[in-house]
Design a protein around this nucleic acid. Sequence first.
DNA 1: TTATAAATGAAAAACATTTTCAATTAAGTA
DNA 2: TACTTAATTGAAAATGTTTTTCATTTATAA
Lengths: 142, 142
Amino acid sequence: MRPSAKKIASLLSQKGYKLTAQRRAVIDVVVNSHEHLAPAALYERVRRTHPAIGLVTVYRTLEMLHELGLICRVHRGEKHGYTLAPSGHHHHLVCTECGTVADFTGCDLEALQQRLSQQTGFKIEGHLLQFLGYCRDCQGGT
Amino acid sequence: MRPSAKKIASLLSQKGYKLTAQRRAVIDVVVNSHEHLAPAALYERVRRTHPAIGLVTVYRTLEMLHELGLICRVHRGEKHGYTLAPSGHHHHLVCTECGTVADFTGCDLEALQQRLSQQTGFKIEGHLLQFLGYCRDCQGGT
DNA sequence: TTATAAATGAAAAACATTTTCAATTAAGTA
DNA sequence: TACTTAATTGAAAATGTTTTTCATTTATAA
């Protein structure tokens, strides 16, 4: 379930963070986008409604949202970006053309993880999984 | 199978790249390390045997090796590094303490991939999978 | 050897991200 | 509503990483 801007805002309040116009603006952009956005791209979008915001504030807000687990990082080659986090364990399917992100659950890696633990002696704490491809809208062109 | 420095060197030659002392030095460091190394870390190690090498050359050599598929990129939070690539499709198990990398094959994601294609309409072209944990040697301490 | 294109290293440029700090402001309190 | 105060902000500087530029050097083939 994708959280709403309102929900995220009230959560920040709860945690003792101040609800500034800048933070609301950043949250709005993240909530209203299904792509993963790099800090600079997000900054550009936020500036449309909030021209005086500083890039630093965008970075700081993203960091805060990330720490609270409200947004998550998407990998794409050398670049990366942030996207809204649904609740619970999930992963991403990313369109390499337009950046659209689809979430999915049920990664079902337990068996593989156990096999690897046994084979290597590693104590496994987590994993990184992401699929890359073309979304429905981007399958036509090159 | 981990390729040897000799094998990599002859492959470069074959492809028309010149075999310089600097390239040999970078390759040696990569081959003789089981950790994933960031460009700067690699540079420091190469400098031990080759003090005059430039950081730029390290970057360029890594890029070249990466393009040829001889090394691959390991993700770890904000940081990343390179490690030797075994032949064929594989993934990494990374120790978050010391950076040691173990390769594994048999990720077995076909079924999941097919399910996601159907559910989302994405045309999936690839995936990113990596396990994180503590290697045998790093499980004791904090 | 020699010729030559490829490769190198230093320096500068280009980016991305973080730090610093004085000014501003949200939110609780009187 | 008007304070108070700590949190937040934005500009500028600092930091760190990666890329570009260009004159010099060098591996390789003739």
